[in-house]
Design a protein around this nucleic acid. Structure first.
Length: 534
DNA sequence: GATTTCACGTA
DNA sequence: CGTACGTGAAATCC
């Protein structure tokens, strides 16, 4: 056996592990798995992230894996990916590939026909991984230009290891700093239920004192807020912040309400209860991470890790003797569009640090107009008709526009799409319905091929950073769609920052080997997440 | 009690 | 300038 060979691995209920190599299974401890990892460095075939989570509990970490659930989501789309389902679909797919097969495969009847997998253990995980690998190789024969799906499968798999580590290790948050921030926004920590109610009432009163005589109501009830505003002469169809924005300068009530909403959001979602629930005594804020959602394939995180209000980032502080390397991808979506569509003119524009400048020159418009035209093309505008810039986009970048239009048409018609890296984007099941719903599906399709491809590139970058910075005792502590936060011993921060930039070039080469697309990242070293400005 | 709606934070 | 997700509270459904 050599480095990179597939070896089955499964966590058992008793805390032990089972390893499978060519027909033979053996039981072992986490320490023994770690020793095998050190000596052989295989690509561990696992059913899901659960195995890595158990290994981490046992003190062992893996460099790479083949995650059957992650690859299943890539091949088949959607979220569902438990072992039995993945096994059944894998066998169903073979049947579907027979040319005579027509129509939509019925996954449940296929499951009934699938060869029995009486025990979905380590050996079966190994078998499933090999079948997935073979399916990917088969697909590769009729692919042209797209990213290698095998490399996507590997990075999506290893991203699950990263997710298990993110869940276990958490994000460094300074409790004192966080509590001070909260005190400034929502007041001190309530001493009890009565105190909490008094603080809440005082916060409400600062809005209600601007209300007309006799008007009042529960600010937490949108219907009552609507009535309250009506009493003040403000008629709105709903009370969303963007709709109220235009009234805030002439109505103290609206201004106070919008301020109240911000504080209330912090108080209810990111307040003391949030800290108590998710911030451990070790100063790490933990949530559950998944390598891909059920849609376009972005990573997800719970415990508010992906929607923490910007003001609270000041409390995300590197631990003593450590610093953060923060890196975010610049203009990732138009650069991804250039890569996945193969548009030579748009590819040329990616050579610029700010690619909207050459695009603006090409379109003969100013930069803001060019940016809006590009984003409208990628996401499908609903307001206005685009104007001259939109029309010139078609002439200047016909290949890129054609790619987006094709995705739009497929989605409208309910035809499935695949991202550049090979993720199935399920559009089927759409029935004929209103033109508005159909247009919405078109926008979803346009967006998904870009967002999904960007997610694949991002994960390739992330797992590359994970591998290359591990020798520096550095660790990724947050992934935020196009942004990485790496926690690193202070003396190695500059070295890590340089590696992160190199990793982007490496990941881009692996993801888009044929393209001449330039990807850029803004990389800074700082003690707090907020400090590292973009 | 479970599900839907509204709202809003992030990218 | 659109899409996505996670969250919490109220409203609504059953």
């Amino acid at each position: 056996m050599k480095r990179g060979d597939l070896v089955g691995l499964l966590a058992e209920d008793d805390g032990g592990f089972t390893v499978a190599v060519d027909g033979a299974e053996a039981a072992g401890s986490a320490a023994e798995v770690a020793a095998a990892e050190e000596a052989l460095r295989p690509r561990w075939a696992v059913w899901s992230q659960a195995t890595a989570r158990e290994l981490i509990r046992g003190g062992a970490r893996l460099a790479t894996c083949w995650d059957v659930a992650a690859v299943h989501r890539l091949l088949f789309g959607g979220w569902r990916a438990e072992a039995g389902y993945a096994w059944a679909c894998l066998h169903g797919q073979e049947a579907r590939d027979v040319p005579a097969a027509a129509g939509e495969p019925d996954l449940f009847s296929v499951a009934a026909d699938a060869p029995d997998a009486p025990v979905l253990g380590a050996a079966a995980a190994l078998a499933a991984a090999r079948l997935q690998r073979a399916a990917l190789d088969e697909h590769a024969l009729d692919e042209q230009g797209g990213a290698s799906r095998v490399s996507t499968a590997r990075s999506e798999s290893t991203a699950e290891l990263l997710c298990a580590e993110l869940s276990a290790d958490g994000l460094p948050v300074d409790r004192d700093a966080a509590e001070k921030l909260l005190a400034g926004i929502i007041g001190p920590r309530p001493r009890g239920a009565v105190d909490a109610a008094a603080i809440r009432a005082a916060r409400d009163e600062r809005v209600l004192r601007h209300a007309p005589d006799g008007a009042g109501g529960d600010l937490r009830s949108p219907a009552q807020v609507k009535s309250l505003l009506a009493a003040a002469g403000i008629d709105v169809p709903d009370t969303r912040a963007w709709r109220l924005d235009e009234y805030k300068d002439r109505s103290p009530l609206v201004a106070a309400l919008l301020d109240w909403r911000k504080a209330e959001r912090i108080s209810t979602t990111y307040g003391y209860a949030w800290l108590d629930e998710h911030l451990g005594p070790d100063g790490r804020l933990r949530g559950a991470w998944t390598g891909s959602d059920g849609g376009a394939g972005r990573m997800t995180a719970s415990s508010g890790l992906h929607n923490m209000p910007a003001v609270l980032r000041q409390a995300v502080l590197a631990e003593d003797g450590h610093l953060f390397v923060r890196a975010d991808l610049g203009q990732i979506e138009p650069r991804v569009l250039a890569a996945v569509s193969g548009d030579a003119a748009l590819a040329a524009a990616t050579a610029a640090d700010d690619m909207y400048l050459p695009v603006a020159a090409e379109l003969g418009v100013d930069r803001p107009t060019a940016k809006v035209a590009m984003i409208a093309a990628m996401y499908g505008q609903t307001t206005g008709h685009g104007g001259v810039a939109a029309r010139r986009m078609r002439t200047a970048y016909p290949v890129a526009m054609g790619y987006l239009d094709a995705a739009d048409r497929s989605a409208r018609a309910g035809r499935d799409l695949r991202t550049y890296g090979g993720r199935l984007l399920r559009m089927s099941g759409a029935s004929t319905d209103s033109p508005a719903r159909e247009a919405a599906r078109g926008r979803y399709g346009r967006n998904a091929v870009i967002q999904g491809a960007a997610a694949e590139l991002f994960k390739m970058w992330a797992v590359t950073v994970r591998a290359r910075t591990a020798p520096l005792d550095a660790g990724i502590v947050l992934c935020l769609h196009d942004e990485l936060l790496v926690h690193v011993p202070a003396g190695r921060a500059e070295q890590a920052a340089a590696l992160v930039g190199g990793c982007l070039a490496e990941a881009a080469r692996r993801w888009a080997p044929h393209g001449r697309i330039r990807f850029i990242a803004d990389i800074t070293v700082a003690r707090s997440w907020a400090e590292a400005k973009s």
